[in-house]
């Protein structure tokens, strides 16, 4: 009988333990959860709400003061303006816009070209190069590559605009004219090239740092053993380094995809979505144009928010895809040695 009671007590303790562990875990995570809630979930909910209203320059008021809340707002002295709940009409307008497919295509082209060529591709090449040369030289090279990142965006883009300016201006023209190349407005001739390069030079530095530190942290024994076995550098990279930096690769790819999806400031400053017909207009820039920048300033915050919210959904879809492709669950599993 006593043994049965003892057994039941042990079972009860065992049942209670996960609860206590999860409570502790939640307590430790609560500051982060609070921050994520305040700075991600609440803004996303607000964005969604605004996208369901007609908030604009000429209806300007508190977007929460619609319908029955209007009277409460007026009683509290909060300006309601002419804001009204319009349901999904902003989304209908968005999907009926004949440039919506083009802007989506532009966005995907911009994100994946910059990501593949620079933010992951070039970053990996730079990390591999700078970790395979003399340590100090590698450090110096990485420090120099960080310069565009610490240069204010406006100055950085102004420099590029002067580089690619129209004839008779343009630094590129000054260099190319003596070798017989006809001066051109390079920024207009190849806008995507400049958009991707300007973003990529800055973006590559992030991955370069992460990959470099990941490569540096690979135990030297592995590399030495491989070399002793006669492996070439390419074989070492392919069979040792790349598999061991899978986690940073997932992180950089996911983070930079989301970052590129939401970034538009360089494009805004460089081409403002042009030339011509939305040639370099990307999704986040359209949201900005709709919500905050037209020449005569009729800001359509409700409509802009609809573009913004769709972008959030696109970002979530990409995140889920990446987590599945890179098998996120396996990456965060407890090492088998610890599990034993």
């Amino acid at each position: 009988m006593e043994a049965v009671v003892q057994e039941q007590a042990v079972e009860a303790v065992a049942r209670r333990r996960p609860a206590r562990v999860s409570l502790e875990a939640f307590t430790f995570m609560s500051p982060t959860m609070l921050l994520v809630t305040l700075f991600f979930f609440v803004p996303v909910l607000l964005l969604l709400w605004i996208s369901l209203t007609n908030l604009s320059s000429n209806t300007f008021g508190n977007p929460l003061c619609v319908g029955g809340a209007r009277e409460v707002c007026e009683a509290l002295g909060i300006r309601a303006g002419g804001v009204e709940f319009v349901g999904l009409s902003n989304y209908r307008r968005l999907f009926a816009d004949r440039f919506f497919p083009k802007i989506l295509r532009n966005t995907l082209f911009y994100v994946f070209s910059t990501l593949a060529l620079f933010n992951v591709g070039l970053a990996l090449v730079l990390a591999l190069l700078t970790t395979h040369i003399e340590r100090r030289v590698g450090f110096l090279f990485r420090a120099i590559w960080l310069l565009p990142r610490i240069t204010p965006s406006v100055i950085y883009i102004m420099m590029w605009k002067r580089i690619a300016a129209d004839a008779p201006f343009g630094i590129l023209n000054q260099f190319l004219m003596p070798v017989g190349v006809e001066p051109r407005f390079w920024l207009k001739e190849a806008p995507w090239l400049f958009v991707i390069v300007t973003n990529g030079f800055v973006g590559a530095s992030f991955g370069m740092l992460i990959f470099s530190s990941a490569i540096e942290s690979i135990p030297r024994d592995y590399i030495m053993a491989a070399k002793v076995d006669g492996a070439t550098t390419l074989q070492i990279i392919r069979t040792i380094i790349i598999p061991l930096i899978k986690w940073p690769l997932l992180f950089v790819t996911t983070y930079q995809t989301l970052s590129l999806l939401a970034s538009f400031e360089y494009i805004l400053l460089l081409t403002n979505g042009g030339p011509g017909l939305y040639r370099t207009e990307v999704w986040s820039l359209t949201a900005y144009h709709r919500a905050l920048q037209t020449y005569f300033g009729n800001n359509q915050w409700g409509y802009g928010a609809a573009w913004g919210f769709v972008l959030v959904v696109i970002g979530i879809i990409f995140s889920v895809i990446y987590l599945r492709v890179f098998r996120f669950n396996e990456l965060v599993q407890e090492p088998k040695i610890d599990a034993l």
Binding site: S57, N58, G274, P275, G276, L277, R279, T294, Y295, F296, G297, N298, Q300
Partner: peptide, 23 residues
């Protein structure tokens, strides 16, 4: 007019597209 800004943006879009030769 409260609609002038949108009118003007659409009109300018056409100007950009014919000058660039896109349309």
């Amino acid at each position: 007019s409260p609609y002038w800004s949108q009118w003007s943006e659409a009109y300018f879009l056409g100007i950009q597209s014919v000058e660039s030769g896109d349309l």
